[in-house]
Design a protein around this nucleic acid. Structure first.
Lengths: 142, 142
DNA sequence: AATTTATGTCAGCCATGTTGACTTATATGC
DNA sequence: GCATATAAGTCAACATGGCTGACATAAATT
């Protein structure tokens, strides 16, 4: 179910991205920068769990093409705080909208109770409390 | 949640496969051949939605290395019916076991009701009735 | 002043997806 | 029975997005 669900969930965004010469790796970066404005490069690395070389490839493209801006950190000037531009925000919304609709449909059909169950099970599948905590979950019993 | 859940769900199998020089594409083939013994190549293509060139690469390796056997179809001799060997079955079980435990833990923590909700929402996320029907789901209301 | 940390970069490798063109064997339809 | 369609396989080339290793720079920390 996860295989089919995940595949179908990203299929629409994939098509939209392909039209712009972007891939799903770009989507992830846009998504998380949108969700955490001012995120640092290393925070993205720890969320995505990829190498900085992999991130660099997609991030530099997003900066070059004007989806994301980097500004120097105030307290730590080594950091590059990442934020979506207007263009980036627009794309993020376009991508999210297709997924939002898909989720809304699933939610409508399944009901609020099912949604709560879905959240619980997904949290249980995750390996780390670190991942779970992004969703406001309490620590898992061992 | 799907991103984190899916990533964590396949991380253990990925490690086990890597030790044998296999990847997650091999896992998919092994999984579906295990689930549908005697599956044809084209049935796999339609499940996985990849090109036969992509499938061929992993499938031939699995056959060469003795995880899967092909036999000619009885009614249609053009078909190659795919089945796991003992070795293939053993690997399939090893891979599935780690995921089964992860699911069991999630289920234990979330409860049977949550599991039903999880299933409902996952089915609602899927695009096609074709995908949904693999899980014994009834047709979705439009 | 020395070390650590945050970020970036070059170069190359691997897995897994793609398209396009073509072959072989077998089944099926007229 | 012949023409066509289908199941499967193959060669070649390319794209995406992971990876490792090595090294550089600037700024923070000790």
């Amino acid at each position: 179910m996860l295989f089919f669900g995940y595949r179908d969930f990203i299929s629409e965004p994939d098509r939209i991205l392909a039209d712009r010469g972007l891939g799903r790796a770009h989507h992830r970066v846009i998504y998380f920068v949108g969700r955490y404005p001012g995120a640092t490069v290393s925070s993205l690395l720890s969320i995505l769990q990829i190498t900085k070389q992999s991130l660099s490839r997609v991030l530099s493209q997003l900066v070059e093409e004007g989806y994301i801006v980097q500004r120097q950190g105030a307290s730590d000037r080594r950091q590059r705080l990442l934020t979506l531009t207007e263009k980036g925000r627009a794309l993020e919304e376009q991508l999210t909208e297709t997924q939002r609709q898909r989720l809304a449909r699933a939610y409508r059909q399944a009901g609020a109770e099912a949604v709560e169950g879905f959240r619980k099970v997904m949290l249980g599948i995750m390996s780390d409390d670190e991942d779970r905590s992004r969703f406001g979950a309490t620590k898992r019993r061992p």
